[in-house]
Amino acid sequence: MYKSMVARYGYKLVGAALVAYSVVMGLWIEVPQLPILGQSIRNLFYHVPLWFSMTFLLMLSAGNSIRYLSSSDLRCDALAAAQVRIALWFGFVGMLTGMVWARTTWGAWWVNDPKLLGAAAGILFYLAYEVLRGAIDDADRRARIAAVTNIIFFCMFIPTIFIIPRLTDSLHPGSGGNPAFNIYDLDHRMRWVFYPAVVGWMLVGVWLASLSARLELLHLIAAGILNKSALRSSSGHEG
C-alpha cells in the first residue's frame, strides 16, 4: 500500500518541487557574465529542459505504442496519445523560448539553423500524427493505426535530428565549432539548477500526460467503449 502511494504521488511531488525550485533559482542564482549572452544565459534553465522533456515524452509514447500493439489495451493508446500531445505543447513552448533567446543573442527571431529546423520537423511529424488521430472515429481502429504510425514516426524523427546538422553549419551551441554545455557546466552553480530542471520537467511532463490520458479514458467510458474499472487500474500505469 505504502509502496503504491509512493509510485502514485512520489514522482509528481518530486517533479513539481524540482520545477518550482528551478524556476525560482533560475532567476535567483548568480550566473557567469558572458559577452552577448548576458543575463539571457538563464534561458538555459527554461528552454533546454523543455526540448529534453519533449524527446523523452516522445520516446515514452513510442514505447506505449509498442505496448498497445502487443496488448491491444486502449489505456496504452490513451497514454501514447497524451504523451505526444504534451510533447507538442512542450515543443511549442520550447520553440517560443528559443526564439526569444535567438532574438537576444543572434539578432533574429528565426534563423535557418539545424537545431531549429530539427525542432520544426519534429512538430511537423507529430502534428501529422494528431491529424491522423482526428481522422478516425472508431477507437480500436484509431489506436492500432496511430500506434503503427507513431512507431514509424519516432524511428524517422530521431535520424532527422541527427542528419539535419550535416547539411548546414550551425550557430547553435554544440555544433559548428560553438561551445556546447561544457562552458556552462564549468559553472557548478548553474549545473545545480540545470539538472534538476531537466528531471523536474520530465516528471511534470509524464504527470500532465497521465492526466490527459485519464481525461481521454473518461471520454471512452462515457461513450461506452470501456467500463469504469479501466480508470481505477490505469493509475498504476503511468510511464
Binding site: 520537423a121 511537423l124 511529424f125 501529422a128 491529424v131 491522423l132 504510425t149 514509424i152 514516426f153 524517422m156 524523427f157 535520424p159 532527422t160 542528419i163
Partner: peptide
C-alpha cells in the same frame, strides 16, 4: 500529409 514527415530524413 503522412508521406512528408516520413521521407524528410
Amino acid at each position: 500529409l503522412l508521406c512528408l514527415p516520413v521521407i524528410l530524413p
